[in-house]
Design a protein around this nucleic acid. Structure first.
Lengths: 139, 139
DNA sequence: TATATTAATGCAACTTAGTTGCGTTTGTCA
DNA sequence: TGACAAACGCAACTAAGTTGCATTAATATA
């Protein structure tokens, strides 16, 4: 797991500041087992008596994505979710309770990507693969 | 390719009506090589002097999805897109011009799904796999 | 071919995620 | 401790999608 203080130290070395929103957001996301959306983040931070404006959060997230600290995850609904950047992985998304489980694929898509790139002369940057269904508790 | 009149005939046999919006929407989607969003559909139909209310379109799409005639496709942005139901496939999405190319995977994800289902006791209903990058024209 | 039924439609008002402009606050370093 | 830019908050906005309700029109059948 990545720790918020380390990330912040790194940022400070590069001339950025340590602020409550930045720290608490990173802390929240590094303790979270699932990616979170901005509305969810606002909810959770409010519970801890930190009530940042949504504009601030969107901008902070934007900043952290530019620093490659966060990545965006898109699932079935229209919310963008964010998680701490980690090794490439995929998700199991429960259609009932919305729980999200990180998974790693055994199979490798690299060969497929090479084939598609050649076949369509398409420069693949990334892919998204998510599995939808019903989790242990919701079946 | 699937033809709009056939689909409509099928619906009529089941007690539903043939209406301009229904016909022209199905015609548009069956001639489209890419999935379309509601704003896009409204734009294209307007060009042909059919200006349905967006509520009507959302409801028509909902109806056609319940009839398994359309499926929803979710890509990188926050629009839902729709296409005529066809054999399971994936997409190459250009991050510059937004063009979408249908592709079929050589590799099969079935084995992977079985493994994940067992491992996490997760009942997989479907998956979404999209490749993002730059198309022939946009590199 | 007139009529009844109900599928389909339109409109207005709303919700929710996300964005923009702009003026203010605050963390950091000299 | 003061200067400067990073970070912040507020208000107003956009765009996708939803809901309630009253109206219109496609179709079966009389």
């Amino acid at each position: 797991m990545v720790h918020a203080p380390e990330i912040i130290e790194n940022l400070k070395r590069r001339g950025f500041r340590e602020t409550p929103v930045r720290f608490r957001l990173l802390e929240l996301l590094s303790n979270s087992s699932t990616p979170l959306s901005v509305p969810e983040i606002i909810g959770k931070l409010s519970q801890q008596n930190l009530k940042p404006n949504k504009t601030t959060l969107y901008r902070e997230i934007d900043f952290l994505m530019n620093q490659d600290i966060l990545v965006e995850v898109r699932l079935h609904d229209r919310k963008k979710r964010y998680e701490i950047t980690q090794q490439h992985h995929h998700h199991l998304v429960c259609l009932k309770c919305d729980s999200i489980t990180d998974i790693k694929l055994k199979q490798d898509l690299g060969r497929e990507e090479t084939r598609l790139a050649k076949r369509f002369n398409f420069a693949i940057e990334r892919h998204a693969l998510e599995f939808f269904g019903y989790c242990n508790n919701c079946q």
